[in-house]
Design a protein around this nucleic acid. Structure first.
Lengths: 186, 186
DNA sequence: TTGCAAACTTACTTAGTAGTAAGTATATTT
DNA sequence: AAATATACTTACTACTAAGTAAGTTTGCAA
């Protein structure tokens, strides 16, 4: 795979997560990489191709992470902790997550990008639901709700908190994430 | 106040909540209202003026709602229930809330719009924090966290759930909102 | 009836966007 | 050495966006 191609994907992801899909242009990428506009079209004929590729890359990265945690024998508490760290890292870097960034722009995304984004959301939610359910069975977590509902509550909290952090200064993000974990402690 | 002006604000709000700030244009409004592009500029010289006015209108609406609930003597449970209904209504109409819609576009919003949006978020969060704290003192709610943290958890869940609803089909929105309330039941 | 202000329209500019067709330099294969 | 593929650049098109200046209609007031 080409280095330029990888750089475009990387920068594109950054731009989506900071400015948003509709707010960034091929110009933003080309000027940053010191190449011409058309060079990006060489790798990604249309913006939709780039968008879809970025989502696919993220799905792959997520699946590698969960596979890695399983093979290393992380217990469910440790797995959830690791998952939440993705968001604390995003918060530190003043970025949102891909789902939270592209979600609002669905009406202007192509069908392909939307279906990949849906796939990504479902993969994350299913993993989280499963982790919560297994963790509760093993006596690691406690919660009243159905695992899927609890997963949705946690996921939506994490996604939106990255947005709210930009609006409300006095958020202590660590306490916030801690509250999500502590809520599950037996 | 002019009827056209009010219609522009109303339609603008709708467009922000469905397509997003960067994805809608004055054209969308003018063609829908059967007027010319420049007519919108007559009322709102720049898009930033329109954006700010829309946020201000929403702040006013929220404050009228909370004032109304207080003067009618709603208890805290009833108040929270009413607040959550805003989101179930949005979900039914396939719209997001203003904060959740404009939040992602902060980098492309004007300073004025951003500061109004921050004001709106803070007003909502303060009201929710206050309602939770008072409700717990009165023995209406139960929760472990600091009221502000709990308020953030609830608010972010509600905001993001409207986004996730577009990505994950099998969400039962009622159960989701119910879980938020039930979690607080003594 | 003239003057004036409100509420527009007409007709335009400027700037940015995605996207494309055709050309070029460089390296690789045949 | 010739042909070809890769990785671009140059130079455009077509379009859409926000925004503006100047003119027009309508109703009301002096």
């Amino acid at each position: 795979m080409s280095i330029t191609r990888e750089k475009i994907i990387e920068l594109g992801e950054d731009l989506i997560r900071t400015k948003g899909y509709n707010a960034f242009s091929y110009q933003d990428i080309s000027s940053e990489l010191g190449i011409k506009n058309a060079a990006i079209h060489y790798y990604f004929p249309s913006k939709e191709n780039l968008g879809t590729s970025i989502v696919k890359t993220n799905i792959q990265r997520f699946e590698e992470m969960t596979d890695n945690m399983h093979s290393r024998g992380f217990d469910e508490w440790h797995q959830l902790e690791t998952f939440i760290k993705i968001y604390t890292k995003s918060h530190r870097e003043q970025k949102r997550c891909i789902v939270g960034s592209l979600g609002p722009d669905i009406p202007s995304l192509s069908d392909n990008t939307v279906s990949e984004l849906k796939r990504m959301s479902n993969i994350i939610l299913e993993w989280l639901t499963n982790t919560l359910a297994t963790g509760r069975e093993k006596g690691i977590f406690t919660f009243k709700e159905e695992p899927q509902i609890k997963a949705l509550l946690i996921l939506s909290s994490l996604i939106a908190s990255l947005q709210l952090a930009r609006l409300i200064d006095k958020i202590e993000y660590k306490s916030f994430c801690n509250a999500i974990l502590e809520d599950l402690r037996i």
